[in-house]
């Protein structure tokens, strides 16, 4: 027989159940707060890294990730429990990134972000190799910021978050075949931009 404690523990292991606990409870209520804290601890790094890939700036990615959690907190009662949490959460992050990029476009965000050389790091102990990789990283950063949002998101999710096609399909709510097709065209455009920037 399942005890109340077991049921409570089970509800604390599932993301959707955590959001439901936030949404249905009084927000000052301890259970709702505990659920929110658990959800934040579980997904804070993913939120930050996805945002970083989209906006290319560490401070803004951090702020966007926190704003995304605040939106989850505020609109938890509108969450559809029959749907998985991650795609919903990803949509919130993506929309915040789009808004951020739109605002930055007026100030020529590329000038700021592409020069933020510290957001994309190379990992190589050999100094000569590291130098080459640093140059490649600079080219890649610039090319990534020139891609459309849709292209950048698929490249970031596959190349830098190392998500499987099934995970990307779930997150973006698209068929697996569309993931493959979008990746093909995004890579094609990215490679072209990198070649142009090299010349």
């Amino acid at each position: 027989m399942t005890s109340d404690k077991d049921r409570e523990e089970e509800s604390m292991t599932n993301d959707s159940a955590l959001v439901m606990s936030i949404g249905t409870g009084d927000k000052k209520n301890k259970k709702a707060q505990k659920a929110f804290e658990k959800l934040v601890e579980r997904h804070k790094k993913t939120a930050y890294r996805v945002a970083l890939g989209m906006v290319g700036n560490k401070d803004d990615a951090f702020d966007i990730s926190q704003e995304a959690f605040l939106r989850v907190y505020k609109s938890a009662n509108t969450f559809d429990k029959s749907q998985p949490f991650l795609p919903w959460f990803y949509t919130i992050i993506a929309n915040l990134c789009r808004t951020w990029l739109r605002r930055r476009t007026t100030h020529d965000y590329r000038m700021v972000d592409v020069d933020d050389a510290s957001y994309l790091l190379v990992s190589d102990d050999n100094p000569e190799e590291a130098m080459i990789k640093k140059q490649q990283a600079a080219g890649l950063r610039e090319a990534l910021m020139e891609l459309s949002f849709a292209d950048r998101e698929i490249v970031v999710l596959q190349h830098f978050r190392n998500l499987s096609y099934d995970e990307i399909a779930t997150m973006l709510d698209i068929p697996r075949g569309t993931v493959m097709s979008r990746l093909y065209y995004a890579r094609k455009r990215l490679a072209k931009l990198m070649r142009q920037n090299d010349e």
């Binding site: 790094k45 930050y48 890294r49 970083l52 890939g53 560490k58 951090f62 510290s118 957001y119 994309l120 790091l121 190379v122 990992s123 190589d124 990789k133 490649q136 990283a137 890649l140 190349h159 830098f160």
Partner: peptide, 10 residues
Amino acid sequence: VTNGMRYADI
């Protein structure tokens, strides 16, 4: 190229 790179953590 992308395999040799990672995003900066905080």
